[in-house]
Design a binder for these strands. Sequence first.
RNA 1: UCUGGCAUAGUCUAAUCGGUAAAACGCAUGACUGUUAAUCAUGAUAGUGCAGGUUCGAUCCCUGCUGCCAGAG
Length: 374
Amino acid sequence: MKLDFELIKNELNSKARLGKIIYNGQIYETPMFMPVGTQGTVKTLSPEEVKEAKAGIILANTYHLWLRPGDDVVKESGGLHKFMNYDGPILTDSGGFQVFSLAKKKDITEQGVHFKNQYNGDSLLLTPEKSIKIQENLGSDIVMSFDECIGYPATEEYVKQSVERTLRWAKRGKDVFKGKDQMLFGIVQGGVYENLRKYCATKLVEMDFDGYSIGGTSVGEDKKTQYEMVEMSVKYLPENKLRYLMGVGDPIDIVENVIRGIDLFDCVSPTRLARHGHALTKYGKINLKNAKYKKDFTPISNDCDCYACQNYTKAYIKHLINAEETFGARLLSIHNIRYLTHLMEELRDAIKKDKILEYRNEFIKNYFGDKNEK
RNA sequence: UCUGGCAUAGUCUAAUCGGUAAAACGCAUGACUGUUAAUCAUGAUAGUGCAGGUUCGAUCCCUGCUGCCAGAG
């Protein structure tokens, strides 16, 4: 196993925990945030910039790389790390989320999911076995089981049969999985239903995966519901394995779910918000497109050590965004990722000091200010 | 100087065989949670160059003026 996880400590007053991932001699502490690089690149950033923003693991996508350039191309190039020139850990999503976001329900069968190739209209079938095979070809370090991400709301009846199928898919994937240097994660689904979350988690743990993901959140439910789904999933997961909450990246959600025992997060939001002109700050999200920043010659954040904040003003970045210059999206992406990795540093520090609940209160006070938060 | 054409939101254009004007861009605001998303949504702004006339009613028809463009001299 090229990658290892070790639990370091549990926070005294919550479920939060501190851990470390050892990868090629490098140590990455958890909880951590993983930026998304769907197509083998964190949009607008070079690998060096990703590292400079203190990000560790990058998430890439099986479905997209399968269609383009093709996992065979990536394999022949020497694997995804070499292909994209990134020597840090890479996690690949299985394509399960694309089932949710791209395919129609009717296209989901026991065998797998039928897609239309978005580039040429070809009919495609992605199966659990195929997804694992592609991820082996890509050579990522953490591989996801092929699952169905259930939307919200969904009836208990639908969720139940979907969970059963996701479990069968997990088993099928695990059976063909051969990755020697790769970890394979199972994904806990079950919607908002505790009995189903419990069932799914328990069954996955029986199958003994290298780590566990929690899926099916941030699909339209309110925040309180999301936190409950996490609680009812984490409860049944082993202490010594990584727990990854898929797709969650709203700062308050990260804080709340670290408290509930999550180790890994990923989200497109820092990079997407950046491309849309927004910056994350300790005092909330700001929209640099707003006219009030036109002559604001101060950095986005005075106490941020990122390249953007060290060298550029809001007025300049606003100008770049308005002029649709890619450098603007790049600077904001660097900043937003650094904002989240810094948030994780603070959370880990709070765990070390057993003061995570105090940290949460402080965070909410700053981030939401007078606004009635959440 | 003459002849002809044109004049509509910040910009560039559309429309009404006469029934109080539409889009794009820009501007403003908002949304984005395992990326088909440098995307999407919403909103403000003209009373149609100016002065008259005809008409129930004119951006549209008529007259004059102004400005711009083209051709002629």
